[in-house]
Amino acid sequence: MQRSRLVFWIFCAPVLCWLFLLIVLPHLDLLRMSFRGENDYGDMVWTFRNYKTFFTEPIYWLTFVRTALYAVITTFITFLLAMPVSFYIAKLARARIQGALVILLLLPFWVSELVRIYGWMILLRESGVLNFFMLKLGIVDTPIEMLYNDATMIMGLVYTSMLFMVVPLVSVMESLDDSLIEAAHDLGAGQFTIWRTIILPHCKPGITSGSIVVFMLTLGNYLTPNLMGGKNSLWFTEQIYNQFIASFNWNQGSAFGFLLLLLSSFIIWLGLRLTRQKLDEVAS
């Protein structure tokens, strides 16, 4: 007994150290920093100013609202696309193809996000692959710039998020008894009603956990909005980066970081409330 507990601590110690040193400590330091700021004489003092700035400067909170809104849209589109895909994988595909399909979804994640985005850029740019073929086929006369707009950015974000929605959906759909669908069909329900009354309610926990993950990933994404969104797409994470790197204002940056954490948690809480769910139900 004594011995096994010792072994337990020996194995746990690195994890705990890791958590504490790399996650808890830096966060505490960031939290402290977010409440520090220079006063008029250039001395560092305790202050709420960094937080106040967020709410008083429209550019900051507007950027946040925009980011959150786009994250919600991305989550919703991802959900719409993932639903039939997951249904196909979980219910219609044969077992052997099933594995292959999941691997296929996983494949893009074997290269880094940066490479994936550059791949998209090569495809979509004015002198890119897609334009080349469209010109060849005579669909367009002059190449079109498909990069650097919101639609492309959302597409990129959806592409990056797909897997994180499909995996939880596939696992809840696999637990759905086929006879429920047939029973509903037998009782007079059409395709749409079956989706609305049987499949969606059954998949609710999967939808919620997938949505939370996708929402958080999208909100915290940096590369995709920056590279694919281009000139009009200030993302909140970029603003944090800019505060740290370009403006050397670490205090402001930390405050933004914590605001991101708080506000995104709030949005998720709100989403759970609106759909009348509890976090532990979703997690189980």
Partner: peptide, 30 residues
């Protein structure tokens, strides 16, 4: 869904997301 025939499934296939009344009313609603 268009046949005047209904099936009681081997494992019943009651809808767990609904209560008893909703289960029974499902077809009526449709």
């Amino acid at each position: 869904n268009k046949r005047p025939v209904n099936l009681v499934f081997q494992h019943l296939a009651l809808f767990p997301m609904m209560d008893v009344a909703e289960n029974i009313a499902f077809g009526l609603k449709r």
